[in-house]
């Protein structure tokens, strides 16, 4: 092989790897990302069933019902509420009236089937998406806002 051919082989291989990486990333960005929604977004019906979503809001007071290892609860942003079911162990800080993020899909019956539920890491922390959504819907309380910064 000549000097030039060697160079070209290297550059060709590099280009190929780069193209593969770009293709993979573009395809995955199109298909594998999860959108964040609020109960109000869901109520507007703009979301098609079967799409992976992160649903954020507060756990509605008095809505948590347990049935063996399955939990039913409602997530609310004050204006609207969505029924959620989840089978598994809830995080330590999952509480009625507190912020939560459920990840999963909306079933055909409108019930959100979560495969993971996140709560805050300690009593002062609220997921940022939830805080923003609550601010938007006007249910943000200043007391909570002051407590957010320190999360440790």
């Amino acid at each position: 092989m000549t000097r030039k051919q060697k160079r070209l082989t290297l550059i060709g291989l590099a280009g190929l790897v780069l193209a593969t990486a770009v293709a993979l990333v573009l395809f995955a960005l199109d298909d594998k990302i999860t959108f964040f929604t609020s109960p109000s977004d869901l109520a507007q019906g703009t979301v098609k069933p079967g799409m992976r979503l992160r649903l954020g809001g507060l756990v509605e007071e008095g809505s948590v019902k347990r049935e063996n290892a399955t939990v039913h609860f409602r997530v609310t942003d004050g204006a609207n509420a969505v029924a959620v079911t989840y089978t598994g162990i809830l995080p330590d800080l999952f509480r009625e009236g507190q912020g939560t993020v459920a990840e999963g899909k909306v079933g055909t019956d409108g019930v959100f089937v979560a495969d993971s539920v996140l709560a805050k890491h300690d009593e002062k922390y609220m997921p940022k998406e939830v805080a923003d959504a609550l601010k938007q819907s006007g249910h943000w309380q200043e007391e909570a806002a002051k407590a957010t910064p320190k999360t440790n």
Binding site: T34, F35, F36
Partner: peptide, 17 residues
Amino acid sequence: GKISVGAPFFEMTFGPL
């Protein structure tokens, strides 16, 4: 816009590479 990129994205991109 708020999205989250989780395990499925990385399994599809990082894995094959």
